[in-house]
Amino acid sequence: MRQRRGGAQGESVNRAHGESGLTKAVNSVFSFVRLAEFEILFVLFFIVAFLIFKDLTSRPEYNDLFVKKPDKDGLWPFL
C-alpha cells in the first residue's frame, strides 16, 4: 500500500479550519486574482490606453496635427 505524502493541497484543507475569517477572505481574493489574471490585465490595459489617449486628445496642439487651418487668401483654402 502506498503512503500519501503531505502535499500542499491536503495541508491547505486541514489548515483552513483553524484560520480566521480575514485570512480566509484574503486567500480567496488571491485565488480569484490567480484565476482571473489575464482578464484583469486585459481590462487594465484598456483603461490605461483610454486614459493616455484621452490625455493626448485633450491638448489644443492635437488638432493642429490633423486639421489644416484654411488660408483665407488662397484660391483653394482647404488644399
Results as ranks from 00 to 15, higher is better:
L79Q: 11
K69I: 05
N27G: 10
N27W: 00
I52Q: 02
G6S: 06
L51Y: 08
F53C: 11
F42L: 12
R2P: 06
L65A: 12
L65M: 15
A36T: 13
L51Q: 10
M1R: 02
V48T: 12
K54C: 01
E19N: 07
Y62M: 13
L35E: 15
V29K: 05
A36H: 15
I52R: 06
L79E: 13
R59T: 12
P77G: 01
W76I: 14
E19K: 10
F46T: 03
S20E: 04
K72N: 03
D73Q: 12
L79V: 08
S28W: 08
K54L: 05
F46N: 08
I52T: 06
G6K: 05
G21Q: 10
W76S: 11
K69G: 00
S28L: 15
F46W: 15
K68R: 15
M1T: 05
G21H: 04
D73Y: 05
S28Q: 15
V26M: 03
I40Q: 00
E37H: 15
M1K: 04
R5K: 06
A25V: 04
A16W: 12
P77V: 01
G18I: 05
L22D: 13
T57Q: 02
R4K: 10
V13N: 07
G21T: 03
E11Y: 06
H17Y: 10
E19L: 15
Y62T: 10
L44S: 13
E19S: 08
R5N: 02
R59V: 05
E39K: 07
F50K: 09
K68E: 10
P70V: 05
M1C: 03
Q9A: 14
R34K: 15
K69D: 01
E39V: 02
T57L: 03
L65W: 07
A25S: 14
L35S: 14
L65Q: 04
F45H: 00
K72M: 09
K72Y: 03
L65N: 02
Q9G: 09
D71L: 04
L56K: 13
L44W: 09
E61A: 12
Q9N: 07
A36L: 10
L35D: 14
R59Q: 15
K54Y: 07
V13P: 00
I40E: 01
E37A: 13
E19H: 03
A49Y: 02
R5Y: 02
S12P: 00
I47A: 12
V67N: 06
V26S: 02
L51W: 07
M1Y: 04
F42K: 04
L41T: 13
K68P: 01
R4E: 10
K69Q: 13
S20N: 07
D64A: 12
V48Y: 05
K54R: 12
A8Q: 10
L51A: 13
L35K: 15
P77Y: 00
D71A: 00
V43I: 14
K24R: 15
E19D: 11
Q3D: 03
D64R: 11
S58K: 05
T57G: 00
D71M: 01
L51N: 11
L56M: 11
L75M: 09
G6N: 06
E11W: 07
D71F: 01
G10P: 00
T57C: 05
L56T: 02
E19T: 01
K24I: 14
T57K: 03
R59W: 06
L75D: 10
E11Q: 11
